[in-house]
């Protein structure tokens, strides 16, 4: 069964870049969100299995969004993709339940390596 993917980033170009670079994976892209508030609503409505999540966003940032997603469904596999390249932000995200963490800029190879690990780790 195809995994259901939600892409969350305030940059439309970045969302489409992620969509394009993950096209070879056996995942159905169920939606895109431009901020944390939209993302939380889409997680409630569409119940994605996997979420790519930016941190610096308007309305609700990615860390607050991650906490809400974990309350709704702690089994959701969240891959943080952020420009915030400090270690503390990464540790906070992993502590709040993220399954993976990537620093922008990310290219197609970076995404492939990260998603290979994310999906393989869960035996999928």
């Amino acid at each position: 069964m195809k995994k259901r993917l939600l892409i969350v980033d305030d940059s439309s170009v970045m969302r489409r870049t992620i969509e394009k670079n993950l096209a070879n994976y056996d995942m159905e892209i169920i939606g895109q969100a431009a901020n944390g508030v939209e993302a939380v609503q889409m997680v409630m409505d569409k119940k994605p299995d996997v979420v790519t999540l930016d941190i610096t966003m308007p309305e609700m940032d990615g860390i607050a969004c991650l906490e809400e997603i974990m309350k709704i469904n702690p089994e959701t596999k969240v891959m943080i993709i952020t420009a915030l390249a400090d270690k503390l932000t990464g540790l906070i995200a992993l502590d709040r339940g993220a399954r993976g963490f990537m620093y922008k800029p990310v290219n197609a190879d970076d995404l492939s390596r990260a998603f290979d690990k994310l999906l393989k780790r869960d035996g999928e």
Partner: peptide, 8 residues
């Protein structure tokens, strides 16, 4: 955003 964020 990426250029500024990476400086962190």
């Amino acid at each position: 955003n990426v250029v500024a964020g990476n400086v962190r």
